[in-house]
């Protein structure tokens, strides 16, 4: 259940509440005050801390920690992981959504539940199942050892664990979207003589592109930011590090410069989070614009 709530498809237009059913002014101000206070304390202040701590030793130290070899290798590892996990899960998401949204078959809701499964598995357990399969003493260990293949404590393990935790993101966005769009347009294209692939590229894809992009962005954010599952798979091996793992190592290092370095790497990830939020909001406004109110009613669950 970690992760996300499906793309919000609600229109801003709503009937104005009238004086007759409005709360007294002081109640309104109180509630707005509580909202701002709560979100300020829990969201803004922590976000600010990251940047303030990152720069606590000055800009030179900031740049210096970014140029550090370990940091550089962590950044490379994180980018590599995302470069594998995001395209693979995007492809899977599109295939799964096509099968689920465009056809009627028995057991559909069970399949949707199974696709959602990784959301409800703790990241630690996600990492652990792969350690148990591929790690020392795991089922495949003798075979892997015989062929000199390393999965656990190695980049391959990081990628597999990341694939698991980011598994539902794209499919989860596309299934409701494609279900709401129905199959009429595709059927019309087929009747006009389009091949299956033509139908997909020219009809389906343009219809789902914003939802798809939205899913990809969320998938990417999680792929780059995953900590628990990756941490379990990598164990205590210092050589394979992703950015979140690197943050932890530096933070636990304890001295002031390491602390600042931890926040420096963290500030990069925080910026990634902010960019994700901006793109997400833009896409939400985009999809609300492009979807008619009629469709909104079906998808705004």
């Amino acid at each position: 259940m970690a992760g996300t709530v499906a793309l919000k498809l609600t229109s801003g237009a709503r009937r104005q509440t009238t004086e007759a059913i409005a709360e007294p002014r002081w109640v309104r101000w109180l509630l707005i005050g509580v909202t701002l206070g709560f979100l300020g304390l829990f969201l803004f202040v922590p976000l600010m801390v990251v940047f303030v701590e990152a720069l606590s030793q000055g800009w030179r130290a900031y740049v210096y920690s970014l140029a550090d070899a370990d940091t550089q290798s962590a950044i490379r590892m994180t980018l590599t992981t995302a470069a594998f996990a995001v395209p693979i899960n995007t492809l899977f998401g599109v295939l799964a959504a096509w099968a689920i949204a465009k056809f009627q078959f028995v057991g559909k809701s069970v399949l949707i539940t199974l696709i959602d499964l990784p959301y409800s598995v703790s990241p630690v357990i996600a990492g652990m199942i792969f350690v148990m399969l591929f790690g020392r003493g795991g089922w495949f260990w003798p075979w892997l050892e015989a062929h000199d293949i390393r999965i656990v404590y190695a980049p391959a393990g990081i990628i597999i664990a990341t694939l698991f935790v980011t598994f539902p993101f794209v499919a989860r966005e596309l299934i409701p979207l494609m279900q709401s769009q129905g199959t009429e347009e595709e059927e019309a294209a087929r009747l006009l003589g389009a091949s299956g692939l033509q139908t997909f590229w020219r009809i389906t894809l343009p219809n789902i592109k914003w939802g798809l992009l939205y899913g990809v962005i969320l998938c990417n954010a999680r792929a780059m930011g995953e900590f628990g599952a990756v941490s379990v798979v990598v164990g205590n091996i210092a050589s394979t590090n992703t950015m979140p793992l690197h943050v932890e190592r530096l933070y636990k290092g304890g001295c002031d410069s390491e602390l600042a370095a931890a926040f420096t790497v963290a500030s990069l990830l925080a910026m990634l989070a902010l960019v994700t939020l901006v793109l997400k909001s833009l896409l939400q406004w985009k999809t609300t614009e492009s979807i008619s109110p009629e469709e909104l009613r079906y998808t705004g669950d």
Partner: peptide, 26 residues
């Protein structure tokens, strides 16, 4: 309001390790 609405998702978007050290420090 639009800004606040967008920021609500920050805990989804922020890697947990980053949230962890920020809160711990705070």
């Amino acid at each position: 309001k639009k800004f606040i609405d967008a920021v609500v998702d920050l805990p989804f978007a922020m890697p947990t390790a980053v949230s962890g050290i920020a809160l711990a420090q705070l």
